[in-house]
Amino acid sequence: MSTDTEASTAGHTGAGPAFIELDRLEKVFDVRRRKGFLRGERRQVRAVDGISFRVERGEMVGYIGPNGAGKSTTIKMLTGILTPSGGSLRVAGIDPSRERTRLAHRIGVVFGQRTTLWWDLPLRDSYRLMHRMYRVPDARFRANLDRCVELLDLGELLDVPVRQLSLGQRMRGDIAAALLHDPEVLYLDEPTIGLDVVSKAKVRQFLRDLNAERGTTVLLTTHDLTDIEQLCSRVMVIDHGRLMYDGALAGLHEVGESERTLVVDLERELPPIRLESETSVRTVKVEGPRQWLAFPASASAAPLVARIAAEYPLADLSVREPDIEAVIAKMYARERPGEPVT
């Protein structure tokens, strides 16, 4: 009950302690690597290497970085799964690793690849378990479920065994399951991975509404920049366990100078494509009749395609969206600061 009042009175005050607060958070793993049959080598890996940030109540933050950058390790510390090796951490005033079960009532977690739903049972049964396990008062549970069912379009699916759901349906089901106890903060690990376009749109719309209406704080990791574009006012980039960037998405594009790639299949091998007057377009790779052209993410592909089609024997082509790895690689290439830009 206390969550209700707290959530509704919370604003973007920024004064006093922040809702989520990390101060030089560290996580060091001992990794044993096998060398030969029995000999092993021990090595320390700093998965999270002194990360500090604050997230206010009601913010929607994208947490991105390449695989193995330390994203999941951070989320695992934020949810109390892992104990930090150094630094301090507070979520809603609670130390997650010390009071994991108490914190559990106040957070929702969705692991993109691992469903928490019951495979052989109707979706409804999984929700009933959440109801009991989190001791959600009946009236509130019903209200929350109704709301999720309506907004996530789950009405038809409630009585279908989970194993018969599509990936997109299951993800929506998982998100609903994480919200039935009114968490103040929702952690999403790759919520749109593998989903079709329609499901992605539904999930994003739902998260926007959730944030706007309930003031739920959302922290999500993703490989899909569109998720960030459409959802997050703020993005944090992490690599090698360090915070590389913390700020608006627009700024990230600027820092990373994001580019899209046009993959062109010509009818035969030709020297690299050169288009006069298109100075921002570069041919980055040639492999037989296939060529890769990079152009700014902000520019339209249409005129470019038209010109190539006019000047070259074109067989096929496709456009690749910039991915986070590429953006981050560019950040390094430009030798931008190792210090976070705020």
Binding site: T79, G80, I81, T101, A104, R114, M133, Y134
Partner: peptide, 14 residues
């Protein structure tokens, strides 16, 4: 091994 233990650790029960 498959990481599903984590889903149990975010629940409010032992």
């Amino acid at each position: 091994r498959d990481g599903t233990l984590d889903t149990l650790l975010v629940r409010p029960v032992p």
